[in-house]
């Protein structure tokens, strides 16, 4: 069910610039459906982890306050072109997704 992420990793000097676009509704559980007036159940990513060549570089916790289809940008020093970047997330319903790319 989970849609794939878009990950882009480019080198800028000795630092890899990594940008991730996740596909997720990020419902806070506080919004009401315009038609039915019912609260839309909470459905958001709670954890994101990123690794470069298997070593953890970023662990993020998220709440419902992150925008729909979350964007995440970070920089990793010492990474090289060809390094493998993997990003995975878990949401509050237990759904999860992992995607990979290589630093270009």
């Amino acid at each position: 069910m989970a849609e794939p992420m878009k990950i882009r990793a480019t080198m800028a000097g000795d630092t890899a610039d990594i940008k991730v676009l996740m596909n997720h509704p990020m419902e806070t559980g506080q919004r009401k459906d315009a038609k039915t007036g019912q609260l839309v159940p909470a459905h958001y990513i709670t954890e994101v982890t990123a690794t470069v060549n298997g070593a953890a570089v970023l662990k993020a916790g998220m709440g419902g306050g992150v925008s729909k289809n979350p964007y995440l940008g970070f920089k990793v020093k010492g990474a090289k072109a060809g390094d493998k970047v993997a990003v995975s997330w878990v949401d509050n319903t237990g759904d999860k997704r992992t995607d990979e790319t290589t630093v270009g």
């Binding site: 990020m26 506080q30 993020a60 306050g65 925008s67 940008g73």
Partner: peptide, 29 residues
Amino acid sequence: LAEKNNTPLVADFELSGGAQGYVSTRIKM
């Protein structure tokens, strides 16, 4: 954190293994 949100803590990021003191994201306010 977005101070006036119903739940102010939006996200936290733990950096390791060469990750720089930089994060970029989009939040709801």
